[in-house]
Design a protein around this nucleic acid. Structure first.
Lengths: 118, 118
DNA sequence: CTCGCATACAACGATATAGTTGTGCTATGG
DNA sequence: CCATAGCACAACTATATCGTTGTATGCGAG
């Protein structure tokens, strides 16, 4: 088991806020793309800007959100700022979301004329 | 293994949008609370309204968002609408988020004077 | 059929967020 | 010392979302 976190129910209000906050940080396509771009290795703002195709300011802004959210870490390397994934768990999160989406699609598929057997 | 979804990288743009969309749906405290309240059993709008302490309209609205997001399902039972968790995977998601939060706290804790040994 | 309850939907104001523009800060090189 | 590159931050506009108010719909009771 990768994560064993037994939480009480109903969830205490502050915890709910924190959980929602983390989801909200991830609820932006550009930030997902940034995290995906950082998947293999740390990168500078410029590299990410090129990889994603957005303005430097916008990339920096979203990286700031990810940084404050604790999802990435920043270290200055000479003239550059190198961003790095702080919690590899985010990829697991994304994969689980993909799994859920796939389940939904399969369910829809089985409702189509012909079902899932065709 | 509960979910085995191998996705290509970089993530194709439409997939990024869909993933972010799902996270965005979860990025609201009230919706987290609704899902948490539905954890054990399906419930009507009124029950959820009481359990959470929000207006009927607001509860119904957020349930609509969850419904359109495919996270809950709705079935009419006489005069009531019974909402039910559609994808149990959301709880796993929340627990993983909690795990990530705990890791962050532990890391911070180890940086305090006295470290994690005190 | 009329009334009342449970729910859904539309419109509105207030707040928040995304993306742009402009600018300041720091490090490197001449 | 000055110029430049890389990055972060503030201000601004447009859009989106939250929560509320008002109302419509559907079902059961009398």
């Amino acid at each position: 088991m990768t994560t064993a976190t037994n939480v009480p129910h109903p969830l205490p209000a502050p915890l709910v806020e924190v959980i929602a906050e983390r989801f909200r940080v991830l609820g932006e396509p550009m930030r997902i793309r940034l995290l995906d771009a950082l998947r293999e290795a740390p990168a500078s703002v410029q590299e990410l800007q090129v990889a994603i195709g957005a303005s430097q300011q916008n990339v920096s802004k979203h990286l700031g959100v990810l940084l404050r959210g604790g999802l990435v870490s920043r270290r200055k390397e000479g003239n550059f700022s190198l961003y790095e994934i702080a919690d590899e768990g985010v990829f697991e999160l994304c994969e689980q979301v993909c799994g859920g989406l796939r389940r939904q699609l399969d369910e829809l598929d089985s409702l189509l004329p012909g079902g899932a057997t065709r």
